[in-house]
Nucleic acid binder design. Structure first.
Length: 271
DNA sequence: ATGGGCACCTGGCTGC
DNA sequence: TGCAGCCAGGTGCCCA
């Protein structure tokens, strides 16, 4: 999935339908997600009201009267708001039926996502506790990234996708931010100059914000709460454009594999 | 501590 | 037409 913009778009789409509403039923059709849904899940959440919906990294947090639901969309997950009793489609694994006669439905073909019950402060949960700063926060600035790059031989693209450095930046937006800041993805993090790091920080923020405005990027599975795709795909400069002309200089966009993920860049614009 | 590679899973597309 | 092989938005974990 879903990288930060798609999770944020999902949050904005479902927020007004869930906050202040009571969960009347939890329907579990397939509990075999990345982490199996535990036996007691339904009994923990049913009868509770959603007090707040938050995002941390690519996780959605449903804060309940007591405890919380931690939800990740994985590579192919989506959450939709539907009228109760909407017919089920393949890979509709979990429903949260609300007191408004609506259902929040989790669909995830590849099942890399998760839906977890957490009794205590979700931010202290092992999956969240050691995550790096949010890319759109003031904490993520040139000083911070310069520190994180110091002494790191790893390629800058892989560093950007490391959740211990900054969260929310996945495979699409890492390539796009590097294009916007004119930095080659294979450059060693420690070799970046200060002004390049500053440009990269700004590019990460810009591309994420632009993508949120467009409702995220849909390659295949992603849909927002209404079931509609995101429109940022049309605004991608390099991702998925191997062999096509660079929209800035016309050179053919190149593609290679880095850490088992596809990377795209313009050999002429990026140095 | 760091970096590299594998694992989890389904489905769509390509090419023989 | 059938099927093998490859690829896809993430990330925790194990190993050197």
């Amino acid at each position: 999935m879903p990288e930060l913009p798609e999770v944020e778009t999902t949050l904005r789409g479902i927020e007004r339908f869930v906050v202040g509403h009571r969960i009347e039923q939890a329907v579990l059709r397939h509990t075999g997600l990345r982490w199996p849904i535990t036996r007691g899940f339904a009994s923990h959440v049913v009868g509770q009201t959603v007090q707040q919906l938050r995002r941390r990294a690519k996780y959605l947090i449903f804060d309940l009267d007591a405890g919380a639901i931690l939800l990740h969309l994985g590579m192919s997950g989506s959450l939709r708001v539907l009228p109760a009793h909407t017919p089920v489609r393949p890979h509709d694994h979990v429903d949260l039926v609300l007191d408004s006669d609506r259902v929040i439905r989790f669909n995830d073909p590849r099942r890399f996502g998760c839906v977890l019950w957490v009794a205590e402060d979700p931010l202290q949960h092992p999956l969240l506790a050691s995550l790096a700063p949010e890319p759109l926060s003031d904490e993520f600035d040139a000083d911070y990234l310069a520190d994180a790059c110091r002494g790191r031989s790893v390629a800058i693209k892989q560093l950007l996708m490391n959740g211990q450095v900054v969260v929310g930046v996945g495979n699409i937006y890492a390539s796009e931010a590097l294009f916007r800041s004119r930095i080659r993805p294979r450059r060693s993090a420690r070799r970046l100059r200060r002004e390049e790091i500053a440009a990269l920080v700004q590019a990460v923020k810009d591309v994420l914000q632009d993508a949120i405005r467009a409702g995220g990027t849909t390659l295949r599975h992603y849909v927002n709460a209404e079931g509609n795709p995101g429109y940022f795909r049309q605004k991608l400069f390099v991702y998925g454009r191997s062999g096509e002309p660079c929209l800035v200089c016309g050179s053919a966009i190149k593609h290679f594999v880095q850490g088992q993920r596809s990377t795209y860049f313009c050999p002429s614009c990026q140095k």
